[in-house]
Write a protein that binds this DNA or RNA. Structure first.
Lengths: 195, 195
DNA sequence: CAAGTAGTTGGATTGCGTCTAACAATACGC
DNA sequence: GCGTATTGTTAGACGCAATCCAACTACTTG
């Protein structure tokens, strides 16, 4: 029996091995100066293997959060026309529940050292847009006007990403990310969900 | 005397020539299937020249709006600690003032035909993040809490980009983009600027 | 006509991301 | 034990975006 349970060749490497190698190099040389080949060389695998584990270089940082965001988007799509503000906020809280220190958290805390400023703006923007779209769709499905839906979507998505950033930057200083997000979402109550 | 007034070799092409060639091809073949080489070939210039006019392929679509966003960001940075909600909204209104039909407007209207869905999410996300950051910085400079600033930033930025999208999609159906944005920003009044 | 200036061009380079066909290591039925 | 299916690794080639540079070209001005 294989360690993973089923047949076939056992994995020679792991996401964690690659992620560690990548993070080391990002800290040493910076993100841009580190090529995928560099990462795989340090991890002792071939370049091809990298893309068996990650879909892109930035995916090393974001795969954890992306997975949770993906779930949230699916949940939001499942809401249908019954979407209420509380239902949406409930789903968003799950995104950050029990979030653990990540490559992303490391990157957010050492953004300057990694030369990540631009890359992070780009990447957070993408996630912001994705989440924002999903929330906005849910709002529209609930009968809310297009532009109001867009604004609600962006506000909610920003609350999530801001909470992640604050949590990552301040370590355990401000409590769990869930608490941070709850506080953050509270601010949006000023923006009524229904027209 | 040269057409531009000064010395040197006159331009053989123009942004407009290239943008037109690009938009044609995007409509015919889709965005992804169109390479920069394709564009320059149709425009009758060398591939190198493309990057004398645009910084990237997507810049063909976004350069108009990016220029205005760039101005807005500079204005926002100039606000200092005196930033008020009205001052910020005044700056944002300038972004869309007298906006004219663009390659971007064309792309937003024909997103499906151009196969632009993913690319547009990516690109709008980037602009959303940029504008959002700038507004959030202004808010923080005015003494507003970090997370509230992020949410305000995202809401304002989303209002701008949503207005652009609505304007582009609906043609002149809903009035000038400035009017659309004014309506859109009105919704944010529910989110008080000051803590 | 000489010098300066602005623009164009080909070509080389780097790196990301995709793809495929070959190869290696394991489990399982026999 | 021996084949076979399965799963994973790998080398290599590919297309493309984007950067850089040195050579060249077309204009202006003195």
């Amino acid at each position: 029996m294989n360690s993973t349970g089923r047949a076939g060749r056992p994995k020679a490497s792991s996401r964690e091995t690659l992620a560690e190698a990548a993070c080391e190099l990002f800290l040493e040389q910076g993100y841009d100066a580190t090529s995928v080949a560099d990462i795989t060389q340090r991890a002792g695998v071939s370049r091809s293997s990298f893309f068996n584990y990650f879909t892109s270089k930035s995916d090393v940082l974001w795969s954890g959060v992306d997975e949770r965001i993906g779930e949230a988007i699916r949940s939001l799509e499942g809401l249908g026309r019954t979407a209420s503000g509380d239902a949406v906020r409930g789903i968003l809280l799950v995104v950050v529940r029990d979030l653990e220190p990540d490559p992303l958290a490391l990157a957010l805390r050492n953004a300057a050292a990694m030369g990540l400023q631009d890359e992070l703006v780009r990447d957070t923007g993408l996630r912001l847009a994705r989440l924002s779209d999903a929330v906005a769709s849910a709002a529209r499905a609930a009968g809310i006007d297009v532009m109001r839906a867009d604004i609600l979507g962006a506000a909610h998505a920003a609350a999530v990403l801001s909470a992640v950033r604050v949590w990552a930057e301040q370590g355990a200083g401000r409590g769990t990310p869930e608490v941070v997000l709850r506080e953050s979402l509270g601010l949006i109550h000023d923006l009524p969900w229904s027209a």
